[in-house]
Amino acid sequence: MSPRDEQELSEAVAGAEGALRIVGGGTRPIGRSVMGEDLSTAGLSGIELYEPGALTIVAKAGTPLAEVEAALAAENQRLPFEPMDHRGLLGMSGEPTVGGMVAANVSGPRRIQVGACRDSLIGVRFVDGRGTIIKNGGRVMKNVTGYDLVKLMAGSYGTLGVLSEVAFKVLPGIETRACVLINGLSNTDAVTAMSKALGSPFEVSGAAHTPAGIDGHPVTMLRLEGFADSVAYRAGKLRDVLADMGDISVETDPDRVQAGWQWVRDVASFHGRAGDVWRISVKPSDGPEIAARAGGDVLMDWGGGLVWALVPEGTDLRADLGDFAGHATLIRASEETRGRVPVFHPDPAPVAALSEGLRRQFDPKGILNPGVMG
């Protein structure tokens, strides 16, 4: 099914006799496979409202993300949260949609500064499992009525409702960017350096570390963005703050900086390589220990608080990690592995009960992406 507007979407859900597999651009098949009839939001496409002066954009859920980003760029504006493109990592094609981005609560390296997708989301329209059209939030930043429900839809993977429209607050574009690079640090020393940088007053917008950079050696990356004079000043000051950490350089070519952070954002070092990919969220101070337990190849983002791990196929990494304060999500694996190993980190019993109660409330027939988050 491919409804052309919100009313047709409502009728399709209300009339469904079995499970529905919600499809946006088809670029993020994360979670367990859903056995059901495809329900595509591709027909719900187009920017509904864009007010640059109000820093607000509203788009239908099936709108390609590239279309939204192009409209924003034409006015020197941007989505704050730097959404990751999963296509290379998951071996997919197609065009990511804004609805799929919200459903997965996608973000990127800038999350440490501005938050995730849900933190920029100010309004949604969606169809619940009964076929009821629900509006929550608003189209301007001041209108935050029902804001908790807006946030609830972000990261629900289509299990609470099928998004038909989303509204975001946006930010002005970036004049220039630079990257302070520290070579040769261990994972532990890298987290120390990233913590010092993030704790400084110099507005670091990205902090990542790879044990094996493009040249095969460890490199720690600290991004600075803003007006040219400010970036140059802060880069010099940050270099002074970190002078005792080792071999430091500053990359000032904005195109090279942009490419380097796209490499981090999209976990490009794992593209086209055999193995399963896990995404582990922890306290930054725990990042080095978790990376050591994970083994294999890792990439650390968010100052050490996000650890990407590439491990042998079929690995139950969660079992190998043992108890830790955080959560591990299986992002890429075979269907067999995703059927055997929980994709999303199991919730504590009280949280699991609350989540199940919410699903029963919004989807009493259990037809919206059933089992995808199992």
Rank of each mutant, 00 (worst) to 15 (best):
M1H: 09
P3S: 14
L9E: 05
A14G: 03
G18V: 01
G18A: 14
L20A: 06
T27Y: 10
P29N: 01
R32M: 05
V34E: 06
T41Y: 11
G43M: 01
G46T: 10
I47S: 04
I47G: 00
L49T: 05
L49C: 07
P52V: 01
V58N: 04
T63W: 00
L72M: 00
A73T: 13
E75V: 02
N76D: 10
L79I: 12
E82R: 00
D85I: 07
G88E: 07
G88A: 09
V106F: 03
R110M: 10
A116R: 11
R118N: 03
D119S: 04
D119R: 06
R130F: 13
G131M: 05
I134M: 11
G137V: 03
Y147S: 14
L160F: 09
G161K: 00
L163R: 00
E165K: 03
A167N: 10
V170L: 08
P172Y: 11
R177N: 07
L181P: 07
N183D: 15
G184Q: 10
K196T: 03
V204H: 01
L224C: 04
R234C: 11
K237W: 08
R239T: 15
M245R: 03
I248K: 05
I248Q: 14
V250D: 06
T252S: 14
T252A: 09
Q258V: 00
G260Q: 13
W263Y: 15
V267A: 14
K283H: 14
A292I: 05
L317C: 08
G322E: 02
T329L: 14
T329A: 14
T329Q: 11
G339S: 07
R340I: 10
P342F: 11
V343N: 01
D347V: 10
P350G: 09
A353N: 10
L354E: 02
N369V: 05
M373V: 09
G374W: 13
